[in-house]
Design a protein around this nucleic acid. Structure first.
Lengths: 142, 142
DNA sequence: CTATATTAAGACAAATTACTCTTATTATCA
DNA sequence: TGATAATAAGAGTAATTTGTCTTAATATAG
């Protein structure tokens, strides 16, 4: 099997949207998030460490501690998250793994994939956490 | 890290394009293919077993044996290959892994992803092995 | 200021994916 | 028709990803 994003990345997106729904100054614990979106608590801890190291989250230890966004939710887009967790290969590497594929010397899939890939990157840049947190609060969304 | 297709699937695509360049009746050995496209020989063997079981390839044991396409190369498209190796999740599952995401109750990414996904599926259906084998033979392609 | 509960961080284990080695099959040639 | 070499098939191993358990840090209450 294979998907666009790793499991870690999926969890990161879900968790950060949950976080973006909260007030920006509140410290939220991993336990609360993991329980709400139903994912492994300590696995999320590891993911949030990465996001902290890259400056997307701030963390605070001890009682009443937790995590919070380090910037306004409208300043964090999907590409920031995906690039941090999964790296940028999805936006640069050959989709079929041909070793010498490039714009100059394309593989037979290169040009078919080009526009699709650009569409994906564009979308990831467009969508930010604030938008998504707002949407998820609308009726009909989950 | 994470990409659209698994490593197995990338190898399958490359190997089948190589096969499509040959005459349709010839039996080609795994060793020849693996050497040419520079991938692990026995790993390719396993991949070709799957493709044989699903009816995309025919195999023949013993001296002068090997594999060949079970249909004309123009009748095998990328979607056939991807679906066989990686399954169909990429075309149906929620891109961010939200457990209850659907058209009726979409996640905040669902509608942004919808058209992109459909574009990918459409492309995979459009491109067949013959086209790709022809392209790879043109100057400038690899 | 000390004990404790709560939390993040980091070490460890399981599952999956990628890869390699061995065995079984079979066409060919002596 | 039997030995042999080439081949697919399948068993076994390594690496990566996912998930869990343990330890270290710290805010708070007494």
């Amino acid at each position: 099997m294979s998907l666009i994003f790793s499991r870690q990345c999926e969890y990161a997106i879900q968790a950060l949207i949950y976080l973006a729904k909260k007030t920006e100054t509140e410290w939220i614990s991993i336990k609360e998030i993991a329980d709400h979106i139903n994912i492994p608590q300590h696995f999320l801890g590891k993911i949030f460490q990465m996001l902290s190291n890259k400056g997307i989250l701030k963390s605070k230890k001890g009682l009443q501690g937790g995590f919070c966004l380090s910037k306004p939710s409208s300043d964090i887009n999907l590409k920031d998250i995906v690039d941090t967790i999964d790296g940028v290969a999805y936006s640069t590497a050959c989709v079929a793994g041909f070793p010498n594929c490039s714009n100059d010397s394309p593989c037979p899939l290169h040009n078919s994939w080009k526009d699709l890939r650009e569409g994906i990157v564009k979308m990831l840049k467009m969508r930010n956490l604030k938008q998504m947190a707002d949407e998820i609060s609308k009726p009909g969304y989950n």
